[in-house]
Amino acid sequence: MLETWRWFDLNDPISLRKVAQTGAKGIVSSLNEIPTGDIWPMANLLSRKLAIEGAGLTWSVVESIPVHNDIKTRTGNFLQLIENYKQSIINVGKAGIGTVCYNFMPVVDWTRTNLDYLLENTGSALRFDMVDFVAYDIFILKRPDAKVSYNADLIEEARNYFEQMSTAQIALLEKNIIAGLPGGEGSYNRESIKTAIAEFIELGEEGLRQNLIAFLAEIVPVAETSGVNLCVHPDDPPFSLFGLPRVVSTQEDVRKILSAVDSPANGLTLCAGSFGARADNNLVDMVSEFGHKIHFVHLRNVVREPNGSFYEAEHLDGDNDMVGLIDALLTEENRRKIAGDRDALIPMRPDHGHLLEDEASQPDVKPGYSYLGRLKGLAELRGVIHAISQFKK
């Protein structure tokens, strides 16, 4: 597998020199300075690529070109926004970058309620707590009809939690949920997020799915001719938030998306932590079914709890069979090599490392993107990959 590293931009506190010292060869990056919906200029792409290559690395994956909400709802100036997206894909291809990861999550991107969940002897982790989230949705945001989204026991737990929250705890929870996490798209206040939520709830799951398929029908042919593989990232968490529709949460969701626009360029980002937050997603089975369309992999692990809560585990711990998943991915790579595929190596990156003690006091560490936590995860994953590869010889 091709080891890559998420690097945000020249303002990332983790320098490209430090990335190179991890042993990773590829960079996963995005032009965060370009407003969502605007065309990515060639000058910006080539400048970023030059900086990456100057450190002896390769820009392997774009993560991501954000999809404007008007495209997801097919409202406003969505036709022009799709044309802009096409041109960005063309420019990415001209810059020599062959993979674009994107997502179609409505309103909120990846979401956690606690960014500093303390664990015994392994630092702190990101956590999604269902009780915390319901407390925010019903009693802080006060979303209309929010109570119909949850069962009575969960609502009562959330009420009890909310009633003992301090003003500071409420502010922190709100910031974690709606202010936007690294790599996500934008932020909201209470009124703007309620307006956006209402629009997507009216659209519904099937409406959102059809809008994604219509979008893919437009952009996939452009990606094909540009030599770019598109790979959709799953919903994170892989279930409804705020009553919103979710269309990339299950194996069946992926099946519908990939079959609707059948092209090698219409592919999947297999995020083990996102799909793995649902017990009914079998990651090894997903590689068996969708392996030829998996263009990018996020390797991370989670510990699931019965009410839907989860936290980020160590990479080789947790509820996901990481060894089995890597074995399946290496088998897919071997199939590609035998077939003579040009994209035999699958880019992977260690995702969402724990925050360890030496970085805990540093103010500029991005949640989920500590240097030492990801370095530890990469080393563990590299060991598994090496051991399995040697065994398969």
Rank of each mutant, 00 (worst) to 15 (best):
R209D: 00
N211A: 02
N211C: 01
L212F: 12
L212A: 10
A223Y: 07
A223E: 08
A223L: 03
E224Q: 13
S226Y: 09
S226I: 06
N229H: 14
C231Q: 07
V232E: 09
V232W: 03
P234A: 01
P234Y: 12
D235G: 04
P238K: 08
P238L: 07
L241R: 08
F242L: 11
G243A: 05
G243E: 11
L244H: 07
P245T: 04
R246P: 01
V247D: 03
T250H: 12
Q251Y: 05
E252N: 07
D253A: 00
V254I: 14
R255W: 06
L258K: 05
S263V: 02
A265R: 03
T269L: 04
C271N: 11
F275Q: 06
A277R: 07
A279Y: 15
D280H: 13
V284Q: 15
V284I: 15
V287G: 04
S288Q: 15
H292K: 05
L299W: 11
R300D: 08
V302T: 13
V303H: 15
E305I: 02
P306K: 13
S309Y: 13
S309R: 08
L316F: 15
D317Q: 13
G318C: 07
G318A: 00
D319M: 04
N320I: 14
N320Q: 14
M322W: 15
G324T: 10
G324L: 12
D327W: 14
L330G: 05
L330Y: 10
T331P: 04
T331D: 11
A339S: 05
A339M: 08
G340F: 06
G340T: 07
R342Y: 02
D343F: 11
A344P: 05
L345M: 10
